[in-house]
Design a binder for these strands. Structure first.
Length: 572
RNA sequence: GCGCCAGUAGCUCAGCUGGAUAGAGCAGCGGUCUUCUAAACCGCAGGUCGUAGGUUCGAGUCCUGCCUGGCGCGCCA
């Protein structure tokens, strides 16, 4: 049950009826406690359209509306706000309902959709580096949230497995005997082959021939290529597993998959009357975009030498995703620099009829990871930071912290906690930022575990679990009664979980869920300080009520962090 | 030259379709541990929301100009 939506509907009907046209009630969580639990802001706008006094309009609304089953009081304030205080027994009943299901009050807003989430998409010629982190974890979180709401999520790892560089790599693999051991360090392997390519003209020539052979389907070449991909994908899978990202081999559908479709894309564009030629290249002119000379932009889909480009592959993928997968919504989780590119290929795809009108194409852009100097995040030597090294450092730092907080701990427990806390902190630091902006990566901030961090939530969870361990067999849950102000605040916050999850699904902004969880954990910490659960002087029914609240908070934090791909711990 | 994104507290950032006195977290200052885990809690202080106009009952949010930073702009992805 999404209370905000409920109020929006109930008030919206009345406001619309009075105004004589459809109006939005604009219900939101109140900006301040003295304004009640929720506030409706829609009367001012509706009154304006109906050309009446907003306060008088709001009074009319209060006269007509019956919210007695939900709200204790409705008050008009300021120019025409309606402040809503919910009934305590309504909140208690809602919490009881919320506790009965794993969905914790979340429900499908409309029809279930088939949603393609295109994310991670590393170039398999090299090892994964920090540049792939944001796409991977943001896309993973979005996939989990949409799935949680009942949508059918198709993950697509659009890996780079088909560029000219593969000729170079295959050639070098042949030269070095194709031993898999030499591929243990992909980065080094790439560097070495690149060096050969740049220094030896003969090598470069055979490399180019290798590409042609590969793309024309030569069996030996294809086998070697497949072997290379398997190894590279293995590296990726190790990273995904350590990150706790739900991506497997089955989700991989790389550029090569669309190879046979590329000529068809060009042909279809021609059929649609969109294809033009310019300087020997073929492509589509877009009036909406201008080039440097203020002429319509030419988006090339086939080079003058006959080769295809990434716009072609993306168009082929769109055709496949709507035609074969039947997607109704497609999310592209890539960095914001590709914004223009996607806007352009979306336009072409719609114009060419590759994507029906009802399908939503959404670029989900994110900013760059910067170092604390404000420049792109690099190693001290200025090189690319490997993803694996980043994960290692996160767990090492978390491990050191565990040791300092809890010196007596066994090595085994330490490692488990370090992995979950370290990886969780790393992912949360990223997810909690508005993805649109560049983000300054700072180990100390992230791993200091203070403030709005994953460990703060993990700690709140562990504290609750500790209570249940202590209560042992005497931990029966009772009916929730929101007696104390902290209990009411906590209960209210719990019921907003569905609102937060809905907002993430709609806007593709995981940071909304992070903010929610931080507020929830904060409300719990305040509750924890002022409302004893297991102390001797707590009445049995109060104890049972608070245990039920604790349980629901624990489940919400665990589920919420789970939607972000972050694990919880019984003890920290 | 054109386009996209950003500019909010000392630092890092929130701010949902325009709503009431702009919020957090760090850092700073001051309180709270014979503890249901202090990785915590409570309080104080900190602001011309880049800038100049405009739209209106109301603007951090919408429009226009300007300034600053980042990114992109036909045969790489």
């Amino acid at each position: 049950m999404n209370i905000r939506t409920l109020l929006d509907q109930r008030l919206g009907e009345v406001i619309s009826a009075i105004a004589g046209e459809p109006c939005d009630a604009l219900v939101n969580v109140s900006s301040k406690p003295q304004f009640g639990d929720y506030q409706a802001n829609g009367c001012m706008a509706a009154a304006k359209r109906a050309k009446t006094n907003p306060r008088a309009f709001a009074e009319e609304v209060l006269k007509k509306i019956d919210l007695s089953d939900i709200a204790d009081s409705l008050e008009i304030a300021g120019p025409g706000f309606i402040n809503i205080i919910l009934r305590q027994d309504f909140l208690e009943a809602q919490l009881a309902t919320m506790a009965t299901t794993d969905a914790l009050g979340c429900e499908l807003a409309g029809e279930a959709q088939t949603v393609v989430v295109d994310f991670s998409s590393p170039n398999l010629a090299k090892e994964m580096h920090v540049g792939h982190l944001r796409s991977t974890i943001i896309g993973d979180a979005l996939g989990r949230v949409l799935e949680f709401l009942g949508h059918s999520v198709i993950r697509q790892n659009h890996v780079g497995d088909w560029g000219t560089q593969f000729g170079m790599l295959l050639n070098y693999m042949n030269e070095t005997g194709g031993e898999t051991t030499t591929l243990a360090n992909l980065e080094e392997f790439y560097r070495a082959s690149k060096q050969r390519f740049d220094e030896d003209e003969a090598f470069a020539t055979t490399s180019r021939e290798m590409v042609v052979k590969l793309q024309s389907g030569d069996a030996d070449c294809k086998a070697a290529w497949q072997q290379f991909l398997d190894i590279s994908l293995g590296h990726c899978q190790t990273a995904y597993d350590r990150l706790g990202v739900k991506l497997t081999k089955d989700d991989v559908r790389g550029e090569s998959f669309y190879n046979d479709d590329l000529p068809i894309v060009v042909k279809d564009l021609d059929t649609a009357g969109l294809l033009k030629e310019s300087d020997g290249a073929r492509g589509v002119f877009l009036d909406e975009y201008r080039n440097k000379d203020d002429e319509p932009l030419f988006v090339i889909v086939q080079k003058s030498d006959g080769g295809y480009l990434y716009a072609t592959t993306d168009l082929a993928a769109m055709r496949f995703r709507t035609g074969e997968i039947n997607a109704q919504r497609i999310l592209y989780v890539t960095d914001s620099r590709q914004g223009d590119h996607f806007a352009q290929v979306f336009l072409i795809a719609q114009r060419a009829g590759f994507v029906p009108e009802h399908v939503s194409l959404e670029h989900v852009p994110f900013g760059m990871m910067l170092g604390d100097d404000g420049k792109p995040f690099k190693t001290r030597a200025g090189g690319t930071v490997k993803l694996m090294d980043l994960l290692d450092e996160a767990t090492t730092r978390a491990g050191d912290l565990v040791t300092s907080k809890n010196p007596g701990i066994t090595d085994e427990a330490r490692e488990t906690i370090a992995a979950i806390v370290g990886i969780g902190a790393l992912k949360y630091a990223d997810l909690s930022q508005n993805r649109a902006s560049d983000y300054v990566f700072a180990w100390d901030k992230m791993i200091s575990l203070d403030g709005n961090t994953a460990p703060y939530m993990q700690y709140a969870y562990a504290r609750i679990r500790s209570i249940f361990r202590k209560a042992a067999s005497n931990a029966d849950l009772g009916a929730i009664v929101l007696g104390e102000p902290q209990e009411r605040a906590l209960g209210n916050k719990l019921l907003q979980f569905a609102e937060a999850v809905d907002a993430v699904a709609r806007s593709a902004m995981p940071n909304v869920l992070c903010s929610y969880l931080f507020e929830l954990a904060g409300a719990y910490m305040s509750f924890y300080e002022s409302c004893p659960v297991l102390k001797d002087d707590v009445a049995p029914e109060t104890r049972a009520s608070r245990l039920a609240l604790c349980d629901l908070v624990a489940r919400t934090i665990q589920t919420g962090l789970g939607l972000l791909g972050i694990e919880t711990l019984e003890q920290m």
